[in-house]
Structure formats: structure tokens, C-alpha cells
Amino acid sequence: MSALPYAEALWLGGPIATLAPAGDDPWGLLPDGAIAVSDGRIVWVGAASELPGGFTAAEVHDLGGRWLLPGLIDCHTHLVWAGSRVEEYERRLAGASYEDIARAGGGILATVQATRAADAGALYAAAAARLADLCADGVTTVEIKSGYGLDVGTERRQLEVARRLGQEQPVNVYTSFLGAHVVPPEYSGRAGLWIAFLADELLPMLAADGLVDAVDAYCEPFAYTPSHCETLFAAARALGLPVRVHAEQRSRSGGARVAARFAALSADHLEYADESDIAALAAAGTVAVLLPGAFLMLGERQVPPLAALRRHGVPIALASDLNPGTSPLRSPRLAAALGCQLWGLTP
């Protein structure tokens, strides 16, 4: 690399994975590497033995044999909530299904009730503690969804807390508006009216205030239909916002096809997607986000269609799906390990 007389900081003394594949090496591994940084940017990376002659650094950090790799992106979290649903895990172990728990007043609506009752300070303090764990695990960018408010004030409060986290914590935050998570109790049996309100009033209001980076929806028979999602996504498109979809997690409900029609950033879960769904995602350029934490905690047996994803060249991402009910993971590294252990993904 080019001559480098000076840098503000230098890291050396350990292996560095650049993740730039070279031959049979998928890691871009530098067994004894060095990285120099100035003005917040990497200005040199290579083998420590190849550091330019006469180079100096204001600060030198010894990795002590620890690995250094690019910051992780956790691209699917429900980070901002109040309350606890730990008892639901015991009920699932005793045989209760996700739907059984929801019908008994648990599930997402239990978290909605607790989150509506919490003020912004309480939500921020709890979310900041969860975020600190993610950052300690190597996360430098995180996506945060709303969806535990399902009313005007609480959806706004969740998104404002997410924005504040991005401003005050050492991490990049991107928000997703998930007002179409489940149907609010006030709109029971009237999902279409709630979707119309989101599309016509709430989403434009929150977007105008700069609180929304993307729009998400949960496409399942007990949540929202493909038609509902399309109505909301058309409104998002009109506002210049990208979309993403909770798709085919519990059944083949049509979410992947909606994701493809709207060229979604991602289709997430995908356990029940079939070959034609995957082909549509490939044509749309949509990323498959797989969530092994939820798969494990829900005791699922339907493995995502990994062979089809590979055949069609759909990019695969893993994320924590950090949430209070079905994936308490605070570690994308653990999500990666679970993907390898449960599904046969490669490191």
C-alpha cells in the first residue's frame, strides 16, 4: 500500500479479518495484521511486517491476540419495549403454541400494554441497556422497529427513543415503522380500518417528522394479509420510503411475494417460503434475513429454504430479532452460531 508517515491511531498484535475474500480464504485474513486510522477513517491495513518505514502513530493499541473485524450490523431488532414475557417460554415448553398464548392475552399485545404504560425515560433506559450489550458484541449499526405501541402516541414515543439512542450512543441507528405488527385491540376485527389510518395519517405524520427510515409489516393470517401490506407499502412508496416484510414465518401467507412486488430491502424469517417465492425475491434484489433466535425459542421445525436461497443467489443475512417474547438474543454472534448449528450455514 502507499506510504504512510503518520496516523492518529494504530491497532496491531492480533489477527485481522478484512472479509475481502482471497482465493481459498473467505475471511481476508491477516494473521498478524495492522490497521491505521486518521480522522475517523481507516487509512492503512495490511500485515504488521509491511508497515511503511518511518511510520508513527499518536496512539498504539495492542490487540493482545484478539481478532479485529468490521463492525456488525444487526438488521432486525425490536429493541424498544417495556415489560417482560419470560413466563411465555415456560408455557411454550408445556405445549402452548404462539397462537394459544396470544389468544390468552399474551404475546405481542401483552408487550403493547406494558409499552403504552411506560414513559420515554423508562423506555430509553431499558433500550440503552439492551443496546449496550449489542455494542459489546461488536454491533456498530442497528435497525430498531416500532410496533409495540399500536397507537399514535406510543408509536411516536418508540421511534423518538430509537432516534435518541442513535444520537447519544456509539452506534448508527435506522428505524422501521412497524405499526402493522398485529391488530390493535381497539381495532379488533377491523384490520383494514387500522391499515387505512396508518397509510393515510400516521405514517405520513411520522415520516414528516423524520422518524421513519423504512416501513415494515407482519404478513400472517393472525396479523395482516398481503392486501393490507400492499396498501401500507403503496403509501410508503409515495413517501419515498423503502419497505421490509415479516414473511412466511408461521405459514406460507404471501409475504415474500409482497416483498418482491415492492422490491423490499428484506424479507425476514422465510421458514415457509417455497422455490417460487425465493425466485421472486432474487429477481427483486431483496435480501433474506434469517432469524435463528426466534426459530429456537419457538421450537420450530420448518427450516428456512436455504438450498433454494443458494440456488437463486439470494443474499442471506442473520440478525438477533431481539424482542421480549420470541428471541431474547442480545448477540448477533450467537445468532450466527445458531445459524450454523441449527441450519447448517457455514461460518
Rank of each mutant, 00 (worst) to 15 (best):
G105H: 13
D216I: 09
L291E: 08
L290G: 13
L298R: 06
G293E: 02
S84I: 05
A263W: 04
A259T: 10
F262D: 07
V289C: 11
P304V: 12
V173L: 01
P324K: 01
G107N: 13
G46I: 12
C75A: 10
P184M: 06
G46W: 09
R103E: 07
L298H: 10
A335I: 09
C340Q: 13
F177H: 04
A126R: 13
A36F: 08
A263P: 02
L72A: 01
L338D: 01
A247Y: 06
W67C: 14
A36P: 09
G192L: 14
E160D: 01
V212T: 04
T141G: 05
A223P: 03
G46N: 03
P328E: 07
L290V: 14
G13S: 11
V80Y: 05
A9Q: 15
L309R: 05
E87T: 12
V37T: 11
A127F: 09
L241P: 08
G106P: 11
L68P: 02
H78D: 04
I278T: 10
I195S: 06
Q113F: 09
S251H: 00
A57W: 05
H269C: 04
L309G: 06
T18S: 13
H181P: 11
Y89A: 10
L30R: 12
G64L: 14
A122M: 14
G105W: 11
E87Y: 13
D119G: 14
S38M: 08
P221T: 05
L290T: 15
V60R: 13
A283P: 03
A284T: 15
L198Q: 07
L159T: 11
L12K: 14
R163P: 00
E50L: 12
G189S: 00
Q167E: 14
G299S: 05
F233P: 06
P21M: 02
L329E: 04
V60T: 13
S320L: 03
L79T: 09
D24I: 12
L329Y: 04
F222M: 00
A82E: 09
R257G: 01
H228R: 06
Y98S: 07
V80M: 08
V60A: 07
W11K: 12
L322W: 07
V152C: 04
A273I: 10
Q341A: 13
I108F: 08
A20K: 06
N323T: 03
A284H: 07
G40R: 12
A273T: 04
L291M: 11
D321G: 02
T326Y: 00
L178N: 01
D213S: 14
W44H: 06
G153S: 11
A120S: 15
P70V: 10
P328M: 08
S327K: 00
L291Y: 09
T141I: 07
D62E: 14
A120M: 05
G106F: 04
D133V: 15
A110R: 15
S227K: 12
R250L: 13
A120E: 15
I42D: 02
G40L: 07
A335T: 09
I195E: 04
H246N: 05
R85C: 04
Y174S: 13
L345W: 03
G14D: 14
D32V: 11
H181A: 06
D216A: 10
A82M: 11
A129L: 09
L10C: 12
A282R: 02
A335N: 07
R190T: 08
